[in-house]
Each structure stands twice: as C-alpha cells, then as structure tokens.
C-alpha cells in the first residue's frame, strides 16, 4: 500500500525510471529503460448500442387462410440441387396467377441451404435456389419487376437438428409477399 503520490514525488519517481536505477552492467544499461517517460494515457474505445427495426407486416386474407393454397410458401430441393421438382408446379402456378391478378403485389423469394460448410458459400447456394423459383414464376406469367430473389443461406433453418431429414427441410425456397418483408 502506498500514500497518494505528490507531484514532486511523482517527478522524482519518473526521473528515477528514466535514469534506470538498476545494478545492471553499463553497456546494456545505456540502451535499456523507460520507453515512455511521461505516463501515456490508456484509451478504452466505447461502443454505442443499436437495435435493428422490424417490418410492419400486412397481407391479403387469402394469403393467410390455411385453406388457401396461397398460404403454402415453401419449395424444397434435393441435395446440391436447385432444380424445382414436379410436385411444386401447381403451387407455383397458383402464386404466379395471384401475382398476375395483383400487379401491385411484389414477392420476395428467399433461398435457403442446410448448415454444412461456409455461411457465405451457402448464401450463394441459396441464391441459386431462389433464382430457380423466380424463373419458374416468370415462366408462369409473373413480371420480373414483381419478383426479387434473395438468399438467407443457412441462417434461417426450418429444422434445427443436424440430421439428414432436417437438412432436407432446410434446402428450400420461401415466398413472401409485400408487407411480409
């Protein structure tokens, strides 16, 4: 324990440091010693917190009605594949017809990948799947201006286990309408 140091004592201590009062041999002593004679200020950078916003969310009732095929929004893919399987043709047809009827509506198509491997590479894989859904909807009559394909990569898994069946559920494209994104 030590008493609060007076300025004079402080200066004395610092000059002692600068003079390097050890018993060291002379040659080494010359080069050694205090690198910063005046105490350097220690900086501690601060971090200001930010909270990200949320979309408001609203949509046509038929898009939310569980009885309506339009409430179904997912297309699943095989491993390493971005080819749309035949079983999804009718669903995509329904969505394309809705987009044709409601030209003011836009759709965000989110492609997804399973968790294995690089997040950024999986983001690129998910993009290819979203593109496949977008191209299919355009072939069925939707206008390109209504459609945006993006990727969520491996970030939004529908299923959280590290199993083959979970990974299959996570290789998918999801369709979101205006107000939902």
């Amino acid at each position: 324990m030590r008493k609060p140091v007076l300025p004079v004592a402080l200066i004395a201590a610092l000059s002692l440091l600068a003079g390097c009062a050890t018993q060291a041999p002379a040659p080494e002593q010359a080069g050694a010693g205090v690198e910063e004679r005046r105490p350097a200020a220690v900086a501690t950078p601060s971090v200001a917190p930010v909270v990200a916003g949320q979309p408001v969310g609203s949509a046509f009732p038929e898009l939310r009605d569980p009885q309506s095929p339009l409430s179904r929004r997912s297309v699943h893919f095989d491993l390493d594949s971005y080819v749309i399987k035949d079983e999804y043709q009718e669903l995509l047809n329904q969505h394309a017809r809705f987009l044709v009827r409601n030209t003011q509506m836009k759709m965000l198509i989110q492609g997804n990948a399973d968790e294995r491997g690089s997040r950024e590479y999986n983001l690129a894989l998910g993009q290819k799947r979203a593109e496949a859904v977008k191209r299919a909807l355009m072939l069925l009559g939707a206008r390109e201006a209504q459609l945006e394909s993006v990727s969520l990569g491996e970030e939004k898994p529908a299923c959280l286990e590290s199993t083959e069946s979970c990974w299959a559920q996570n290789r998918r494209g999801d369709m979101l309408y205006s107000g939902e994104f």
Binding site: R2, P4, V5, L6, P7, L10, A13, L14, L17, C20, T22, Q23, A24, P25, E28, Q29, A32, G33, V34, E35, E36, R37, R38, P39, A40, A41, V42
Partner: peptide, 30 residues
C-alpha cells in the same frame, strides 16, 4: 499508485536475467 486527481499511475520494468539489465519500462496513467 493513486494520483491526486483520483486516477492511477502504473509503472513497471522488464529485466533480462541473463543480460542482467532492464530491457523495457513503461509508465501508464489510467
């Protein structure tokens, strides 16, 4: 050590025991 303005000052020296000399030192106010 505590300084009169309510802060601290920390000083140290580093020695090489084979060369028998101080090889670094620092004084930091914080």
């Amino acid at each position: 050590s505590a300084t009169p303005d309510g802060r601290y000052e920390t000083r140290f020296r580093l020695y090489d025991t084979h060369r028998q000399s101080a090889i670094a030192g620092q004084a930091l106010a914080h």
